[in-house]
Amino acid sequence: MARKRKGVPRHGWLVLDKPGTMTSTQAMAKVRWLLKAEKAGHGGTLDPIATGILPIAFGEATKTVQYAMDGHKTYRFVMKFGEATDTDDRAGTVIATAPGRPTDAEIEAVLPRFTGLIAQVPPQYSAIKVDGERAYDLAREGEVVELASRTVRVDRYQLIGRPSADEVEFEVACGKGTYMRSLARDLAVALGTVGHITVLRRLSVGRFTLENAVTLEELEQIVAAGERDPDDLLLPIETALDQLPAIDLSATEAQRLRHGQGVLLLRRGDLERLEAVREGAALATEAGRPVALVRLDGAELKPVRVLHV
């Protein structure tokens, strides 16, 4: 007999403004505990020192976590020139120093090298797996981790402030898998010095923004007061799927998908619907409600993940 899950079956996304005092997993666990939720996951890890947007999925929304992780992101960070750390942020140990303090003009001249599709080596302390183990676990054990360069997309890398002679503030808009710590580290090296991140804040992940975020303290107060239904804090499951085309189905078609069956689109009126999902995944809906993530196989829609809401 399958073990019964404990907790309330909630479905949707909560946008947490993560504090810089815990890991993403710890923050997610705290939120899940506060809401007494049956099932939860998060859409994209933030560094422990980082604050800002951590989308937390509940229930059926956990089936869409990958799409949140793939979403466009924006960050703001402060980097300090003159010191390199083993983690590439303030949490690490200083491993090198250099006297260079670039001017704004020198920084602006180099920034174009770090926009567009660029090659980037992730930090030694990262969640990337090496022979089945996390790179940060190997690094903590004193091993030198050789991580392969990967191609990432940086849409904007903008100097926005100069808190001090040693510090510079940037805002970055980027795609999946881009490490801010690597951007800061590599920029410093390109300027003939070293550096690390001292402040890091994520401003958005896809449609998840600070405008609809809640802090842990605010969430604790809301739960303690007991005056609001916690489900009122949740955004719809499809919030993470804005990059996917949507295809509306009839009640009969939706029922087939819910039972794991395909839907043939062979009628003349189906041509427009076929074009909408010609490439990759799509979101099937019925009367505006999500039914399933689907893919097109010939002229047949096949369910990839059925959303039971």
Rank of each mutant, 00 (worst) to 15 (best):
A40P: 01
L274R: 15
D89N: 02
L16Y: 03
T64F: 07
T51P: 01
V309C: 09
D47W: 02
I160Y: 00
E167T: 09
L274G: 03
G132C: 12
T85F: 04
V304I: 15
G44T: 01
E211G: 14
D229F: 05
H259E: 13
V15C: 14
D104A: 15
V172Y: 08
R134Y: 02
P245V: 13
M22F: 02
K80N: 00
L117F: 13
T97A: 05
A37G: 11
V291P: 11
R202G: 00
L16G: 05
A284C: 12
L14F: 09
G226L: 05
L283Q: 07
G20D: 04
D248F: 07
L187I: 09
T252P: 01
A40M: 05
S204C: 14
A139V: 02
V110L: 07
V65P: 08
I107N: 02
D88T: 05
T209F: 06
E108G: 05
L283C: 03
D131M: 08
R32M: 04
Y125C: 02
M28W: 00
E218C: 09
H196E: 03
G206S: 05
G41Q: 11
E300W: 08
D297F: 05
A96D: 08
E220L: 08
M79K: 04
T193L: 06
G161Q: 09
I56N: 12
Q120T: 11
G177D: 04
K36I: 07
A61Q: 06
A119H: 10
E146W: 04
Q66I: 07
E286F: 14
E217R: 09
F208L: 00
Q261I: 03
G82C: 12
A119R: 15
R90D: 07
Y125W: 14
T215L: 06
D89V: 12
Q158A: 12
T193A: 02
R113L: 13
Y75W: 06
